[in-house]
Design a protein around this nucleic acid. Structure first.
Lengths: 113, 113
DNA sequence: GAGTATACCTCCAAATCTTAGGTATAGTTT
DNA sequence: AAACTATACCTAAGATTTGGAGGTATACTC
């Protein structure tokens, strides 16, 4: 994926966060950036300038709660889904999935359709 | 797809335009809105407030050329790909396709990955 | 005459992202 | 010891994109 492809992330970052947290008890910010990089073989990079504001917004919306721990001398802020967060996660993930399917329909279009 | 799903379009609108025009000689704005609605069974709606600025930007970038016709008393502004537009279309479509595949990898994730 | 479909357009506000910067600890390399 | 890399948090400024609302106009149907 080329460098400016990260701009195509728009709108999907918060759903990616919710999905990752749905599959795990809790994660911290830096861990999320590394996990996305790992799962996409380095293709997608979550910039911190996008991630932290997104996490704070989800927390402000009541979908995430935080818990701070000190591990090996460094502070970690763990995020996990609230009850409402779980509901919203399911809903937003299925919306994005449906959107992605529509997008693929459009992109796989053969001529004269 | 729910109503606010149209907000997930971000970043992909211009690629959708390029893809539609790659498969057809030329299209006009209103036709694009209808075609997208048709191809996605009404799930996706391209708003005019997003479409026309996007078309004008692609034209300003030299990827599209225009040709105005009067059909049944109404003005139609047809857009078609320039030579450079064809090149860019291929490139941007494959980028978005790769992005969508990564997104699906993330969304289809099973627990404890 | 009113409403609907077709067909173009712009402006403002909201949301999201990128870039660039800042702080700090721990370990490794020179 | 200094420099670099990895870990780990954060913010601010600016650009881009989008949605919503509005505007104009023609043709057809009720």
């Amino acid at each position: 994926m080329s460098t400016n492809n990260q701009q195509l992330l728009k709108g999907s970052l918060s759903v990616i966060i919710l999905k990752l947290l749905e599959d795990r008890e809790k994660m911290y910010g830096y861990e999320i950036t590394q996990k996305v990089k790992e799962l996409t073989a380095g293709d997608m990079t979550i910039t911190e300038g996008a991630l932290y504001p997104a996490l704070h917004k989800l927390e402000a919306e009541g979908l995430l709660t935080t818990e701070t721990q000190v591990v090996e001398g460094r502070v970690r802020k763990y995020y996990s889904l609230t009850k409402d967060g779980h509901k919203q996660a399911a809903s937003r993930i299925s919306e994005l999935t449906a959107f992605v399917e529509n997008l693929q329909t459009l992109l796989n279009l053969k001529p004269s359709f």
